[in-house]
Design a protein around this nucleic acid. Structure first.
Lengths: 161, 161
DNA sequence: TTCATACATTTGTATATACAAATATTGTAC
DNA sequence: GTACAATATTTGTATATACAAATGTATGAA
C-alpha cells in the first residue's frame, strides 16, 4: 500500500537506517532534531533566492514591529528565536544590504539604535508572504487541534530542569 | 500562581517577547525551531566537557553498530541524523582523537573503510550513559502516550510536499 | 574628582557548516 | 584498449556560529 510506503519514509528508524528500534525517548529527540533540520532546509531554499537568512529576516521583522521606534542590539537579541552570540555582525550584513540603519544612542552612547529603512520595509513586504505561505503549507496537514497539541507537547519538553 | 508563571515562561510569545499572538502555524514552527535549539544547547553542555560534538558522537555510535564491519563514508552519511556536507573532515577529527581508523577499501579503491578503535569504544561506553540519562530526563515529564503522539505529529509535519 | 565596577557593544579567534569544484577510481560502450 | 560517464571522496572557499577578550561609556562610592 502507498500509505505503508509513506509511513516507512517518515519513520525515523528508516531515515537514519538503523535496524534496531530506538528507545522512545531517543526516537522523539532524534525526530525533533531531524524535523527542525528538515524545516530549516526548506526555509533556506525559499530564502536563498532573495539572498537573506532566516535570522536576518527575523531581525527585520522585529525592527518592523517597533513601529518606527529604534531598537538596541540587546532588545533585538532577546527577541530573536535563536539567541545568537553575534548580533553585531548580523546587523552589519543588513546594513550592507541597506535594509537597516545604525546610530549610537544619544542618551546613552554605549547603546546603538537600529531602525529599518524604507528599503528594508519594502523587502520585508515582498518576503513575508513567501514565509507565510511556507508556514501554512508546512502545517496544512495538521488540524487546529493537532497543532495546539504539538505546541503544548513542545512546551512540555522544555519543562525539564 | 506558580503554574501560571511557569506557563508564561514556556509560551513562545513570551520567550521571543512579542506583544501580539502569533498565528498558530507560525507559533508551532517557531516553537519547533526554538525547542530544537534549546535541546542542542543542553546536549552541547553535556558533551563539551568530553570534547566531542553530537555529530561526532553519532558517528561513533554508527560505527559501533557495525559490529566490527567497517563502514564507508557514504554509509555513515546516510545514517547521520543531520546529513552534513562534510563527513570527511568530521572523520578527520575522530582520527585525531584516535577514536576511529581510516583505510582505503581494497576491493574498490575509491571508497574508504572506517572502523571504530578500542579507544573509541571505551570512550563511547563512557559517554553513552550520559546521553541516555539526558534523553530520559528530557522526556521524563511526558507519558508514553504523549511521546508517541509527539513523534506522530512530527512525522505528520514532514508529510508536506 | 578619581577609581572600581557594571553595562552595551564590538572584535578576535576557533570551529562548524554549506556548496561547488577537483581528484582519483571504476565501469561501460565502442 | 581508449574514451567517456559515473561513483566516492577530498579540498577550497565562503559563510555561520560560539565563546572569550577588548573597547568604550556610564554609574556610584570614597
Amino acid at each position: 500500500m502507498y500509505i505503508q510506503i509513506l509511513y516507512r519514509q517518515l519513520k525515523i528508524e528508516n531515515i537514519i537506517k538503523t535496524e534496531v528500534e530506538l528507545p522512545l525517548s531517543r526516537k522523539v529527540i532524534v525526530n525533533l532534531l531531524y524535523t527542525e533540520h528538515w524545516i530549516m532546509d526548506k526555509i533556506n531554499l525559499e530564502l536563498k533566492a532573495h539572498d537573506i537568512s532566516l535570522q536576518q529576516f527575523n531581525v527585520l521583522r522585529i525592527l518592523n514591529g517597533q513601529k518606527g521606534k529604534p531598537a538596541n542590539l540587546s532588545t533585538i537579541q532577546e527577541r530573536m528565536v535563536s539567541k545568537m552570540s553575534n548580533t553585531t555582525r548580523l546587523v552589519d550584513k543588513l546594513i550592507t544590504k541597506t535594509y537597516v540603519e545604525r546610530t549610537t544612542c544619544p542618551s546613552n552612547r554605549r547603546k546603538v539604535e537600529i531602525t529599518i529603512t524604507k528599503n528594508g520595509k519594502e523587502f520585508l513586504n515582498k518576503i513575508s508572504p513567501i514565509m507565510d505561505a511556507f508556514e501554512n503549507r508546512t502545517t496544512a496537514h495538521l488540524s487546529e487541534k493537532e497543532l495546539l497539541h504539538l505546541n503544548e507537547l513542545l512546551n512540555k519538553i522544555r519543562t525539564t530542569n
